[in-house]
Amino acid sequence: MNSLFAFIARQRAFIVFVLLEVLSLWFYFKFNNYPSAIYFHTTNYYVAKGLQLQASITQYLNLGQVNAGLAAENARLNAELTTLKGQQVPTIINYKADSTVAARFQPIVAKVVKNSIVVAQNNYLTLDKGTADGILPGMGVVSPTGVVGIIRGCSEHFSLVTSLLHLDPPMRISSQVKRSGEIGSSRWEGDNTEVVKLFDVSRYKSVKMGDTVVTSQLNSVFPGGIMVGTVKKLGVSSDQTFWDIDLKLATDFRNLSYVYIINNRLQKEQEQLEKTIQAK
Score class of each variant (00 low, 15 high):
Val213Met: 12
Leu247Ala: 05
Ile8Trp: 12
Ile38Trp: 14
Ile151Arg: 03
Lys129Phe: 07
Ile135Trp: 05
Ile261Leu: 12
Gln217Gly: 06
Leu23Phe: 14
Thr43Gln: 09
Leu19Cys: 15
Ser155Thr: 15
Phe40Ile: 05
Leu125Gly: 03
Leu53Phe: 15
His157Gly: 10
Ser24Glu: 04
Gln54Val: 07
Ile226Phe: 10
Ser3Met: 11
Phe31Asp: 05
Asn123Pro: 09
Ala120Gln: 15
Glu269Gln: 11
Ser155Lys: 03
Gln278Pro: 03
Val177Trp: 01
Thr100Lys: 15
Leu61Arg: 14
Val161Lys: 03
Phe14Asn: 13
Thr126Gln: 15
Ile93Leu: 14
Ile57Arg: 13
Leu61Trp: 07
Val89Asp: 03
Asn33Trp: 11
Val196Asp: 04
Val142Tyr: 04
Ser202Gln: 12
Ile245Phe: 06
Val47Pro: 01
Asn44Gln: 11
Ser180Tyr: 07
Gln278Leu: 12
Ser257Thr: 13
Thr126Lys: 02
Asp98Tyr: 04
Ser185Val: 12
Lys114Tyr: 13
Asp133Trp: 05
Val147Arg: 01
Asp191Gln: 14
Thr162Ala: 08
Asp133Pro: 07
Arg254Cys: 08
Gln65Tyr: 10
Asn263His: 14
Lys275Glu: 13
Pro223Tyr: 07
Thr212Leu: 13
Ser220Val: 02
Pro107Met: 07
Gln54Tyr: 11
Lys96Thr: 13
Met139Asp: 00
Tyr124Lys: 04
Ala71Tyr: 03
Asn2Ser: 10
Ala68Thr: 12
Val101Asn: 11
Ala250Ile: 10
Ile93Val: 15
